[in-house]
C-alpha cells in the first residue's frame, strides 16, 4: 500500500470518496490538506488532480508529493474556474469551516459536474447525549476541538445539509453514512443517519 493510501485509509470519508471517483476523471479538491487523497487518486486511478489549500504547510506537503496545489482562501470563491470544468469537486470535512457555506456549495456545482461533500454530523447521538446530559460543548473523535479552539464555525447536521441543498436548488444524487469503525449500530446507520452516522457524504449536482 502506498504511503498516501495508508493515510487516507485512516479517514472513512476519504476512502468512500476514493471509491466514488471514476478512473481517468478530472478532480479538484478544495482544502486538499497534505494532498494524500489527490495523490492516491492520481497514482491508483489515473485521475488528473488539482488542489486548493490555504496553509503553507499543506502547500509544502502537496508540492513534495507532486500534487499541483493553489494557495487560496475558499471564502473568495472559485471565480476563475470555468463552468463544469471538473468531473468532480471535492470538499471533505471543510464545509463547517468556511465563512460562506452557501457560496461554496453553489460554486462546487457550478465548477464540477459532480460535487462530493463530506460533513461531520452534529446531530450524531454521541453529541446529543453530551449536550443533553453534561451540558458542555460536545467533543467527539470527529469534532475533537474545545469550543475555544475550534476552527468549526458553521457546524451542521445531515438533515441541515439536505435542507440547504433544497433551498439552493442543488440535487443530492447520492448519500452515504459512514463511521470510522464498525460500531454496534452500524447496520442501522442507513435507516437513521442523522442520529446514528458521525459522518455524511453527499454526491451533489445542479438540478
Amino acid at each position: 500500500m502506498s504511503p498516501e493510501m495508508k493515510a487516507i485509509a485512516l479517514r472513512p470519508d476519504l476512502m468512500k470518496i476514493y471509491e466514488i471517483v471514476q478512473p481517468g476523471s478530472r478532480v479538484l479538491d478544495l482544502g486538499a490538506g497534505s494532498g494524500d487523497l489527490l495523490k492516491t487518486l492520481e497514482r491508483h486511478k489515473g485521475v488528473t488532480v488539482r488542489g486548493v489549500e490555504i496553509s503553507e504547510e499543506g502547500i509544502m506537503e502537496c508540492i513534495a508529493k507532486g500534487v499541483p496545489i493553489y494557495q487560496s482562501n475558499l471564502d473568495e470563491g472559485l471565480a476563475d474556474y470555468g463552468e463544469q470544468s471538473f468531473d468532480y469537486v471535492i470538499l471533505s470535512q471543510t464545509l463547517q469551516q468556511v465563512h460562506r457555506p452557501k457560496l461554496i456549495l453553489q460554486e462546487i456545482v457550478r465548477v464540477g459536474r459532480i460535487g462530493i461533500v463530506s460533513i461531520p454530523n452534529f446531530a450524531h447521538w454521541h453529541i446529543r447525549i453530551q449536550l443533553l446530559l453534561r451540558g458542555t460543548m460536545p467533543r467527539t473523535s470527529y469534532i475533537p476541538y474545545h469550543w475555544y479552539e475550534t476552527p468549526n464555525i458553521h457546524l451542521l447536521s445531515i438533515r441541515d445539509f439536505r435542507k440547504i441543498c433544497a433551498e439552493l436548488g442543488i440535487r443530492i444524487r447520492n448519500e452515504w453514512a459512514v463511521s470510522f469503525r464498525k460500531a454496534a449500530m452500524t447496520f442501522l446507520m442507513p435507516f437513521w443517519p442523522n442520529m446514528l452516522a458521525p459522518l455524511g457524504i453527499f454526491e451533489i449536482s445542479r438540478r
Binding site: 488539482r50 503553507e56 502547500i59 499541483p68 496545489i69 493553489y70 494557495q71
Partner: peptide
Amino acid sequence: NKELADALRVNNVEVSFCVLD
C-alpha cells in the same frame, strides 16, 4: 502573482501557487 496563476489556471495549465510568509 496570483493574477498570473489564475490566468494560467483558467487555461488548464498545471499550476502551483504559493505565497511564502
